[in-house]
Design a protein around this nucleic acid. Structure first.
Lengths: 113, 113
DNA sequence: CTGTATCCAGTTGGATACTG
DNA sequence: CAGTATCCAACTGGATACAG
């Protein structure tokens, strides 16, 4: 609290977390995992129309590598994999809420001179 | 408040505002305009080392078209242009703060099982 | 000073086919 | 089921040159 950022450090800090969420599908994936929801790979494929296997796998790998999503493999045939948010992944909620709030203000606040 | 979003609508809502902030330089530009700061084109060029004229102009155009940044042209020779945040542009502050807070929790919260 | 136009390389993402 | 591999088209951003 009361922490002060210079434009440079604040921007790079925010930019860093933005990078973690970049890509066309990551946010959609995160929302489908909210509230501790578990989803299998095939569940996410069905829940996100238009996403390709390649992108789903790739984005999940990155989210996992960044510590936002956890992957649990059940060693059986055929294989079963479940994805969920890590604790840190859940912690992004307030930030996403704030962004939604900002989006809502778009029609309320003046945007011109 | 208490508004409930389905994964789909919430994701697209957040994704929409994310799109507005996408690009490698927009956040940096926004931070240099915080607190009602006025900046000329050449000021921003100096403040943001590494950015090209093309990108600075392009990102400013988009921020302006999206109602986040306002552009004021002084009709004189040589031309003078000042940029500042719109009211809605200023309103993004809390969201950016929340993202910074999330970034800070990265070392505090467990990221694995 | 404040841009626009052009060319070019690197990256991103989609379609398809294949694997343990 | 849960991926990987490959090819390819579209987009992004940098460098440079030019203009009002």
């Amino acid at each position: 609290m009361g922490k002060v950022y210079t434009p440079a450090t604040a921007a790079t800090g925010v930019e860093e977390v933005f990078k973690l969420l970049e890509g066309r599908w990551k946010l959609v994936i995160l929302f489908h995992l909210f509230d501790g929801k578990l989803q299998r790979f095939s569940d996410l494929e069905k829940l996100i129309p238009g996403i390709s296997q390649k992108m789903l796998a790739q984005q999940l790998r990155q989210l996992e590598a960044d510590g936002i999503v956890a992957r649990k493999l059940y060693p059986q045939v055929p294989p079963k994999v479940e994805y969920r948010l890590t604790d840190w992944g859940q912690a992004i909620c307030p930030a996403l809420d704030a962004l939604l709030k900002w989006a809502e203000q778009r029609d309320e606040l003046p945007k011109a001179d």
